[in-house]
Every structure is written in C-alpha cells, then in structure tokens.
Design a protein around this nucleic acid. Structure first.
Lengths: 200, 200
DNA sequence: AAGTGTTTTCAGAATATTTTGAAAGAATAC
DNA sequence: GTATTCTTTCAAAATATTCTGAAAACACTT
C-alpha cells in the first residue's frame, strides 16, 4: 500500500506530508474555479504534488474517500488528459501519474470549459440571432415603439455575441500554443501591457 | 406591473418575448461559468436583454420566482456592479437597470472571481511555500531520498505559483483596461498571435 | 403617531450534487 | 476452465445548494 511515509517518521517526512495536505486543501477549494467537484480537484492535487504514480488504494487511503469516488475521479482526470495511467512490473494494479507542467493543466482546463460552456452558449446565441434577424419577426404590423425595441434587442444580442466570440478566439489561440510560447506571452502581457495606464 | 407586452399582442411582440426567453435560458446555463446560480444569471439575462429598467415584481412574474429569490439575486447583481438601481417619478418602487456594455460585465465577473478564488489560492500557496522553504522542514536528519522528494515538491509548488501568478497578473491588467482598449486587445490577440484556427 | 406600500431576511422545504458501498465486470494467473 | 485481483458502475444515502414565503424591517405619507 502506501509507500510514501515508511518507517522513517523523520521530521522531514512529517513536514512534507503536512505541506502536501495543505496544498491539497488549497487546490480543492479551487475546484469550482475550473468546474469540478472538490474531491476531483483534491485527487488531482494529491497526484500533482506527490509527483510519483499512485494507485487507487493509495488515493483512497490518503484522502479518506470511497473506492467508487476515487475510481470516478481518477477516470475523469485521465479523460481530461492531466493524469496518465502507468503500470509497474510485477504489479497488477494500475497507477496514475499527474501531468507535471502547469501550463498543460491550464490548457486542459480551458479546453474542457470551452467545450462544455463557451461553445454551447455561442451556438445558442447565434441561433437566437438567426431567428430574430431584421425582416423576420413573423411579418409586418409592428408599431414604431415595438420596432425600436426589436432593433435595440438585436444590438444588445449582437454586442454580447461579439464579446464572447472574441473571448472564444482567445481561448482557441491559447489552446494552440505550446508551453514555452504561452509562458512568454503571459509574462509579456501581464507585465508589459497597460501598467494601469496601458497602451496596446 | 408588466408594461412589457401591453394589449398589443402583435406578432412582433410575441417574437420579441420568445427571443428574450431563449436568451435568458442560454445565459442561465452559463451561470456556472461565472460562478453564480442559474437564477441569478437568468435575472441578469432578463434585465440585460430587455434593456429597460424593471422592478422586483416584473422580474418575479417574468421568471416565475419568489420574492425572496428575486430580491437576493437583484441585490447580488447590484453588488457585482452590473445592475443599477433607478427610480421613476411618482413611483415608490425600485427599478433595476442592467449595464449595457458586455465588456463592463466581463470585467465585473473577472473581478469577482479574482477576489473570491484567485487571490485566496495564491495566498494559500505562498504560505505553504514559506513553510517549506529549503532549510526549514523542522531541522536536520533527512536521508537522500527524502531530500530529493522535498526538492521536487518545492519545484512543483513553485511552478504552479508561477503560472497562477502570471494569470493573476493578466487578470489585474484586464481589470485596469477601459472598454475600447479591451476590445482592441482581444481582437488583435485572438486574430493575430500564434498559429492555428482562430475562426469563430 | 399610525398607516401603507416596498424591500430584506432567514428558517425550513425543495432541489441538485456528490459520495458511498456493494455487486457486476474485466483482466490476469493458475 | 476456475480462482484471484483489480476496476467500474450505479442505486441509494449523505451532503450542499438554492428557493420559498411569511415575518420583520424599512421608508415614506398623511
């Protein structure tokens, strides 16, 4: 089972486990930020901070969660592409190893949210626009006030689509960038642009 | 009460209300994206797409929600800074008007999530780092393997802090940019930087 | 001051999400 | 083939979140 803290209950091991637990707790809180349950975030945190592969039983024991929960969380994280299944010779158990590059993790999270949230919303808004384009609206007789409302409705809809489309474009761009480029871009933008006053 | 669709049940009014309802439904789905309940997102969607001020009773009726729910959602949206309280002469009721600029809305959402999620996480991670900086760890006797684990733990922690710090910097920058600059920057970045795709 | 219309609050109800645990399903060993 | 070990599934239980509605608080008016 747990080979993490062996007989060596040295001060070093204790401090390390304590730090890991703190990391897990903090990361778990962030679960809602990237749209997953606290437990799933904690499982990821554990594997990320430990760095070495762990099996289902290790995870269950360390986080005090059920087998079913561990299995589902691990599977989901594999699906997200931030956990790899690994095997050890002479061991029938399956082990899981976390992706170590935070930029890869970031991309996975962005990809997932784009797919699950951004794309459906953009598609939905586009449909509404098509259904209410000027000239449609089911025919003729609308008074002036009504016509004004419709025009302004379309403007608001359009402006929202514009912003979301731009954001979506940014997201796609991010997904297409390799880690090194990403780090450079983020650093340059965050530090260089704007500065409170900011020029483009 | 509802002055939205008067006696004029013309085709135009019907189509407009239908489009509004669809917008509200789509926007409501996105609630989890920006970290609020579906109802709060729907209340915002309603006021945004209608464009004109509405009072609590209007909102309750249109969305079929309770007074308490409407009151709390409206209040929260005012706190977020994307709804303004307005008054009508000769009317004791309070009306609410949505911010019309989607970029302002975006900034409000980013600001809220930075405050509620990014800052606490960064603070938590920084604390953990301080508690486990090399030389600490409670003193001496750690064997070589343990020392290696601690070193690699610190590296992983550091790399995660680096990425989140960079993202946080980006967020702050965004919050400091006026609408026009934001639009330009997003457009330029989404279309220009990097390679691959980028189409809406 | 009491009266009237409006808004806020919050305990309990309703709803939704997450977790468990045991049974069924795979996969490998014998 | 059966036995053994590990993994997945999913209905029910536990938990967390959201919503309601009626009472309290508030803000005007007379």
């Amino acid at each position: 089972m747990s080979q993490q803290v062996q007989q060596t209950d040295s001060a070093g091991a204790l401090a390390l486990v304590a730090a890991q637990d703190r990391f897990i707790a903090v990361w778990g809180q962030m679960g809602s930020t990237w749209g997953v349950s606290r437990t799933m975030a904690e499982v990821h945190a554990l594997l990320f901070i430990v760095g070495e592969p762990m099996c289902t039983d290790d995870v269950m024991e360390r986080l005090a969660i059920s087998r079913g929960n561990a299995s589902m969380s691990l599977r989901a994280l594999v699906d997200w592409g931030i956990l790899a299944r690994v095997h050890k010779r002479g061991d029938r158990k399956e082990y899981f190893q976390a992706e170590g590059d935070p930029w890869v993790i970031l991309r996975a999270v962005v990809a997932e949210r784009m797919k699950r949230e951004m794309h459906p919303v953009l598609a939905g808004l586009a449909e509404i626009r098509d259904a209410t384009e000027p000239g449609r609206a089911g025919g003729g007789a609308v008074d002036a006030a009504q016509a004004g409302r419709i025009a302004s409705h379309n403007e608001r809809l359009e402006s929202m689509i514009e912003v979301l489309g731009l954001l979506s474009g940014l997201g796609e761009k991010l997904l297409g960038m390799p880690t090194e480029q990403l780090r450079l871009a983020a650093g340059a933008l965050g530090a260089g642009l704007g500065g409170g006053g900011g020029r483009l």
